[in-house]
Computed example of a mutant assay.
Amino acid sequence: MLQRTYKIGEVASLTGLKPFVLRFWETEFPQLAPVRTKKGQRLYTDEHLDLVTRIKALLYEEKLTIDGARRRLADAGRDVSVLRQVYDELKAIRCLLDDPPVT
């Protein structure tokens, strides 16, 4: 299935931001890296659109600095990996409890 992509002008319209702000955020947030066409045009995915919305909320609503927003996004990524690790460990424990070893 093809993923929906948006040009920078579309993202700007959808988010209420100026294109130059989006280009600047690309330099400040490593997670925001739209795909480039052969001609250099930026193509944003739905995930990028969600990330732009999250960054906008962190900066404009929560009044974080760019550095603070960058740290918050990095911490959110770590939280997910920790939750995944806990889930995997609990799943392994459940398997042990459901099928105890024969002695």
Rank of each mutant, 00 (worst) to 15 (best):
E28R: 12
G40N: 04
E61L: 10
L83T: 09
M1P: 00
D99H: 14
R36I: 04
L64D: 04
H48G: 10
P34I: 09
L73V: 03
A33D: 11
T5L: 02
L14E: 05
L2C: 00
L2W: 00
S81E: 15
A76M: 14
P101R: 15
L64W: 05
T5V: 10
L64V: 02
P101H: 13
L64N: 07
D88R: 14
L2K: 07
D98W: 05
Q31E: 15
V11D: 03
Q85I: 01
L97N: 12
L90T: 07
E47C: 01
G16H: 04
A74M: 10
A33I: 04
Y87M: 12
V80R: 11
W25S: 08
A57C: 05
Y44H: 06
V11L: 08
I55L: 03
V80H: 06
T15S: 12
T27D: 07
K7Y: 03
E89A: 14
L17W: 00
T37A: 10
Y6G: 01
K38I: 05
I8E: 03
G16N: 04
L96T: 13
K56T: 10
E61Y: 08
A92F: 05
D88Q: 15
L43V: 01
D99R: 13
R94G: 12
K7W: 00
P19K: 03
E10R: 06
V35T: 11
D67Y: 06
Y6R: 01
D75C: 04
T53W: 00
D99C: 10
Y60V: 11
D67K: 12
L17E: 03
L49Y: 01
D46Y: 05
P100I: 15
Q3N: 03
I66G: 03
